[in-house]
Design a protein around this nucleic acid. Structure first.
Lengths: 151, 151
DNA sequence: GTAACTGCAAATGGTTTGCATGCGG
DNA sequence: CCGCATGCAAACCATTTGCAGTTAC
C-alpha cells in the first residue's frame, strides 16, 4: 500500500507526527467516495479492528482540516460535520430534496469564474463548494405516478 | 409595512396559521442581508421587544423550511444552522478562511450549467448553493506584512 | 527527553421534544 | 370550538475539553 507512505509525507510536510490513528483515518477517507462524518469513520475503523477513540477522531479531523489536508463541510439535513480528502480534482453534489440522495458530478463550470472574481475583488480562491438542490430522476417519476403537483 | 401582509399570504398559501411569531421571524429574515442563526434571530427579536421563545424559533424555522419559504444551510466554521428567506434571486458567498468574513456576490455563472445537468441526468434543479473559500483582500495584505508564507 | 498525541470521562452547546396552555380560523 | 402553535423545562446528541498517560522524533 503505497498510499500509507504518501500520508506519511503529507503529515510530515504539515509538521504533524505520523501516528497510526492519523494514517488510519486518512486511509478511510481515501477509500470513501463520499464525505464522511466522524462517527462513520469511527464505525469503519472499528469494523476493521482498528481501536480508536471517537474524540481522537474529532481531534485528528480538525487538525487535518486546519492543515488543509482534508475539507470540512456540513450536511444540512442532519446537521453533522462532514470530512473528505482534499484531493485536487474536486467534485460537486446533486442533492435530491425528496429522497436526500447525493449524486456526485465531476464537471466544474467555472475555473474561469474564479479567475474573474480574483481580478475584480482581490479575493484569492482556495476552493469552492457547489451544491445543487433538486429532484432526481427517480423521485420525479414517482411523483408523476402519484399525480403529485410540481409545487 | 406591506411586507407583513405578503407574509400573511405566503403563510396562508402554505397552509400555516398567521401568527405574530412567524411574522416577526419572517420580518427579521427579510431585513437581513445575510443568513442568520436561530440565536441571532432570537437576539434581534428581543432587541425589538418582541417576546418569543427560542424553541419556538427553531420550530417556526423548520416549518418554514419544510414549506420552502426559507432556506436552511449551515456554517462550516461554527457548525450552526443558518436560515435565509427563499428569495428568487439568489446570492453566493465568498467565505474568507482567515477572518471568516462572508462577502455576498450576485453574479451567478451557470444558469446554463444547470440546463446541461437537467438534460444529461434528468435532474430537475430547484436551486443551488455556491460557497467559495479563500482569502479576502484584507487578510492577504495582512499576511504580506507579516511575511507569512502562502502555504 | 520532551512536546505532541491519544484515551477516557465529563462538560458544552445547539437543537429537539413532551406536555400543558394559548390562540387563530 | 377544534386543532394547530407556543412556552417552558428537560432531554438529546454531536462535538469539545481537561487531564493523565503514551508515543513519535
Amino acid at each position: 500500500m503505497s498510499e500509507i507512505s504518501s500520508h506519511k509525507e503529507a503529515l510530515k510536510h504539515s509538521g504533524l507526527k505520523n501516528t497510526k490513528q492519523r494514517n488510519s483515518i486518512l486511509n478511510i477517507l481515501e477509500k470513501s467516495t463520499q464525505p464522511l462524518t466522524a462517527d462513520q469513520i469511527y464505525v469503519a475503523l472499528i469494523n476493521e479492528k482498528t481501536a480508536i477513540n471517537l474524540s481522537t477522531i474529532y481531534r485528528v479531523l480538525n487538525t487535518l482540516a486546519e492543515k488543509n489536508l482534508i475539507i470540512k463541510s456540513s450536511s444540512v439535513s442532519d446537521n453533522k460535520t462532514l470530512f473528505e480528502l482534499n484531493s485536487l480534482e474536486h467534485k460537486h453534489h446533486l442533492v435530491c430534496v425528496e429522497c436526500k440522495k447525493i449524486i456526485m458530478v465531476d464537471e466544474c463550470p467555472f475555473e474561469e469564474y474564479e479567475k474573474k472574481l480574483k481580478e475584480k475583488m482581490g479575493f484569492t480562491i482556495l476552493g469552492h463548494k457547489l451544491e445543487i438542490y433538486g429532484i432526481c430522476n427517480n423521485c420525479q417519476k414517482k411523483n408523476e405516478k402519484n399525480n403529485k403537483p410540481t409545487v
